Simulated assay, not measured.
Amino acid sequence: MTDPHTTPAAPGSPVPASRPSSVPAPVIELTDVEKVFDIRKRAGLLRREKQQVRAVDGISFTVPRGEMVGYIGPNGAGKSTTIKMLTGILTPSGGRVRVAGIDPARERTVLARRIGVVFGQRTTLWWDLPLRDSYRLVHRMYRIPDRRFRENLDRCVDLLDLGRLMDVPVRQLSLGQRMRGDIAAALLHDPEVLYLDEPTIGLDVVSKAKVREFLRELNAERSVTILLTTHDLTDIEQLCRRVMVIDHGKLMYDGPLAGLHEAGESERILVVDLARELPPLETGLARTVRVEGPRQWLAFPADRSAAPLVAELAAAYPVVDLSVREPDIEAVIARMYADRPGGRSRV
């Protein structure tokens, strides 16, 4: 791995007597973790053959307390399987998993009081109850002290803009509203670790900004460790200093987002609307990849700021509007490994 985070010791290697005070103790530890599923496929009219699918293949990483990490990859790469092992829903086929010093598979109930989980399109709220009643049930289930519950609930309602939704049944909420409701429910019991699967899915631009700001404050003020899976690179850019890429069950990259863009040679697209049709715009900072009437598309390296390019174009051309499109995560990964032996040529 390229990131300077602490790497788990190999089996049989000596364990350091003490950890340097400057290095935070890891709250999440995976060492050579595997998960293999047995499936049966039809091999004739009456016969089925058993095959093994390796969803996670020898992953090792640590996450220090208080860090916010992006965990990304294509669909089917092993992200959800990893998180299910971290929560105790699945038992690893091999390797070692520890969260807050606990083996999730053996002490799932104990761990549940110390973690929060938001699983994308699967709600933890009660479908026919209003949000308020769902939160009261969470209050009872986790035995949250009354004062702390009220403080946490008031804060979540305010920052996630849930006030007008508290008496609305969950089934009547939009996807974006329910996602905000799920995030609040996952935080009422003060978890040390928070797993988020696509937390901004279905949200408009304003709501996305509110959720991101909320997560930043949560991480800064309470040192909550956050593992974030998403297909939105803007979430990663605005929230995480570190990103891990998983593909075909293997950890392919662990480091800063800029390094990922560099490794994948990914590009952003600047969409420029002009006052009139013009030949392809000339700039040394980008290349024109498409022209349709007064609209042009310019590609530039994803690890560079768009500001100098925007300033140059605005000064030289009759620009009416501009927008930046982020690179698709699957495209970045495809470019990273297309030329490697055993890598995927298409995602």
Score class of each variant (00 low, 15 high):
residue 10 A to F: 08
residue 232 D to M: 06
residue 183 I to P: 06
residue 249 G to F: 05
residue 133 D to C: 00
residue 141 M to F: 15
residue 123 T to L: 08
residue 13 S to I: 10
residue 52 Q to Y: 10
residue 92 P to M: 04
residue 89 I to A: 10
residue 340 R to K: 11
residue 203 L to D: 12
residue 215 L to C: 07
residue 264 G to R: 06
residue 16 P to Y: 09
residue 229 T to Q: 11
residue 53 V to S: 04
residue 173 L to Y: 11
residue 294 P to R: 15
residue 38 D to W: 07
residue 287 R to S: 14
residue 139 H to K: 13
residue 133 D to R: 02
residue 200 T to L: 07
residue 289 V to T: 14
residue 26 P to R: 01
residue 64 P to R: 00
residue 81 T to Y: 02
residue 289 V to N: 02
residue 44 G to P: 06
residue 224 V to T: 15
residue 240 C to P: 13
residue 156 C to T: 12
residue 329 I to A: 05
residue 175 L to E: 09
residue 226 I to F: 08
residue 9 A to E: 11
residue 98 R to T: 06
residue 309 L to Q: 09
residue 117 V to M: 12
residue 266 S to N: 12
residue 281 L to I: 00
residue 19 R to I: 07
residue 80 S to V: 01
residue 34 E to V: 08
residue 315 A to L: 15
residue 227 L to H: 06
residue 278 L to F: 01
residue 67 E to S: 13
residue 270 L to V: 00
residue 32 D to W: 03
residue 339 D to V: 00
residue 115 I to Y: 10
residue 117 V to P: 05
residue 228 L to K: 02
residue 29 E to R: 00
residue 77 A to I: 10
residue 88 G to H: 11
residue 339 D to A: 08
residue 268 R to W: 03
residue 93 S to V: 10
residue 137 L to C: 13
residue 346 R to G: 05
residue 211 V to L: 09
residue 280 P to I: 02
residue 170 V to T: 11
residue 251 L to W: 08
residue 175 L to F: 08
residue 10 A to P: 05
residue 252 M to L: 15
residue 130 P to I: 06
residue 22 S to L: 12
residue 14 P to M: 04
